[in-house]
Design a protein around this nucleic acid. Sequence first.
RNA 1: GCGCGCCUAGCUCAGUUGGUUAGAGCAUCUCGUUUACACCGAGAGGGUCGAGGGUUCGAAUCCCCCGGCGCGCACCA
Length: 906
Amino acid sequence: MSEMPKSYDPKLYEDSIYKQWEESGFFNPDNLNGEPYSIMMPPPNVTGVLHLGHALENALLDTMARYQRMLGKKVLLVPGTDHAALPTQAKVEKLLMQEGIKNPRQEFGREKLVEKIKEFAENSKSTILSQVKKMGTSCDWSRLAYTFDEDRSKAVNEMFKRMYDDGLIYRGYRVVNWSVTGQSTCSDDEVVHVERAAKLYTFKYNKDFPITIATTRPETKLGDTAVAVNPKDDRYQKYVGKTYHIDVGAAKLLEIKIIADDGVEMNFGTGALGVTPAHSPIDFEMYEKQKAKGDPIGIVPVIGLDGKMTEAAGKNYQGLTVEVAREKFVQWLKANNLLEKEEEIVQNVGTSDRFGDVIEAIPMTQWWLNMRQEIPGRSKSLKDLLREAVTTGLENNPEQTVYITPDRFKKLYLDRIDNLRDWCLSRQIWWGHRIPVWYRSTSFDSARDKSLTAGHEEIFCGTTDPKGDGWEQDPDTLDTWFSSGLWTFSTLGWPPRQAPSTWFETSRDKPNDLETFHPTSWIQMGYEIRDLWMLRMILMSSYALKQIPFKNVYFHGMLRDESGKKFSKSSGNNIDPLDVIQHYGTDALRWSVLSGIAPGNDSKFYEEKIVGARNLVNKLWNIARFISTTAKITTSNSIPTAVTLSDQWILARLNETVKTVTENIEKYNFSYAGEALRDFTWNDLADWYLEIAKIESKKDEILNYILPTLLKLWHPYMPFVTEAIWQEMFGGEKMLMVEKWPALFDIAASNVVQPDFTIIQSIITAIRAVRAEHKIEPAKKISVTVKTSDKKLFVANEEVIIGLARLDNLVFDAGYQKNNSTVGFVIAGMEIFVDLSGAVDVVKEREQLQNEISRIEPYIESLEKKLSNQEFTQNAPAEVVEAEQKKLNEAKEKLAKLINQQKQLL
RNA sequence: GCGCGCCUAGCUCAGUUGGUUAGAGCAUCUCGUUUACACCGAGAGGGUCGAGGGUUCGAAUCCCCCGGCGCGCACCA
């Protein structure tokens, strides 16, 4: 064994250890035996580099993977990246614009822009993957996946086709969420509602119109085609069914029909609602309802894809932005004395989570996934499957149930499913999986025209190009979460070669992966992508495989800075995980993100935490260093024999720690498990037992047992330092990574031993406190007398007490009388007197004793009161009563002794 | 509007079926060149568990209500 340096330097070990692990082949489950255990890494977006959130994810993932591997399972952790369609395109376009390219889509054209994005994505991807390695993540690189690679693209097309063939994916003209900045649709989940101040205008279309309406978007009124009132509203009954033609300055006269709709609140505002089918999802629903009733109303889009007023808005408005048009329309209302009220209100508006602009509702033809329609042959909808998966289990099979940690997210998920609408799948951006649909039509020009062109002659949906001439593929791409939804199985060789509707060969060479590893065992993710990702994974997997995607899902919270703010580049509080690794090492980073977290809760991350983590890593290193110089290192695995009380105690504590750590990792209490381990490592082992080992001899066997056990327990959290120590100790033959997780062993009477040792600890601590209190130089050795009738415990631990309390003498005297040169205290019914050789300040000592007495008196009182309460003695469990009685007896005894000591003090 | 989470020492958080005089880490103060570690050791101070009410023999823990902070969902024009 080489000489270990004084402090652990992560830089000397981390890269080479990672390389060793990788070369060992044990990252690949094909080289492991045992029960399969699989985890899919949430693929980071290729929009840039890893941030702290990724560090947390990698720490969680890898802690779990390493723990499971040490339990002897065949662990698969699949690494990967996500092409992140919209975010990536948005990012690259932004960069190009910063370089001075005003409109990248126009200037480059589709092919060239996609090429640019691809270049960026590839760069980002390799950066990210090297960072994952820096985090020490033990993933199987042979199964590396990318949501936009060939295998995953095949899976996407296959899924689309199956859903299309099942009639679940349809093309429909509906109001969509449109981002003008991004020039694309987005799903409901990608709309972020923000509060903002707005004005609510109350007015009439003209003087002759009988009903007053209100709106915050006056400019959209140019596209109104109806006014809706509640059918029960007597005020407006007489108008229902009538149509008015009104000139508000639009291209044509408004044709407003008065309709009745249950959804209109009679008591809100004027009780009447101007209906703008083209620019409001609710109004569009009314439009559809009227159509179904055979009493149709019109639909007039007055806002275009560029966010400006269209021709239909009239010459006065055409080409104006919505804001300018709004002002102009309000001016017109004022000029014509139509405006009745103008109020400041706070309203929620939807904004694009990526582009930040206000989402416009615009009617377009898009591809949708139907959530409510029955799946052919299964008598249930996708929505039903989503519900089953977390409640009864798919098809009432309890084994196909997803367990959610923390539990409360299950309720949120179910709530979400309740008001889930159809999922808009198509996007007008270029980076992403192209919709696998082809049209053959002469009138088809562009995606934009789809909304205007009624029906194409032929539509083909397939996983490869259709045969024959004249086909043109849909220019749109898929919502990026469509491919993410397949992640748990597209990474495992789905679709399989012999799948009924598959006619391509997959390049997968591990055909059994799906069977072996799906459903996956556990997954972790941030709660913010619960609906975006978890829901879609459950949906896709339940639909295509009739399996849940994972048995357990763990939601972590967000890391925030000291003041509780999110980390971000723009707010300048960003911490780069690589910087942390550079300064403190990966193990410190991992521990600092894991300690103090609770499932589903945000936690704060700050420099002091990392420093503390680094110190702990170093402590572990030095514990090993000490043991290696104190004990003869062997690789014996046998359970050691406890010789002294301290031996029994430390082994019992170790056993207890193994139990706590194991149980809590199983419950995903990563922080709690780690804290318990830290407590044992630092407080019990380092501060007490190792100090005792300097006094009592023959600890080789026990230390040879404790150290490897400790390293194993720490390994999932701190893989590098533990592996480094392991190899320093035992050579590089066998890696710690694949050692067996510690098992519990049988310690006779461990429960009895522990309190006994605690007494010794208390005595030592108390003597030290007396020394500190009386400013006795550390080097000065003093004498202590113990007044006890049973000196067994002391005799057995004499050396330890003398050593740790720095005594020159420990005397047993059952009849000792206190004098003015000693200070006394009572512990566990025994009186201890520290000889200060006349240095005692009698007044001060009396005060000290009095303090102690006045602390214990009210305690005794409350115990007496409790025990004399019949309701307590009758209702409380016998053990509790007994314990309270014992406490009382001890306290009384202690009090008597203290009073006596005070008396003896002259 | 509906729902969820949080409020415990100066700071960050434990407190796992209600039962020691409520704990830890960091920070603070005192002391220390005891050869594993100053990225350390020893000791100390510091809390009416957000406010109030209730249930109970007993509440930081369960219930109600109020306040503060954060978040989710929602078609209130």
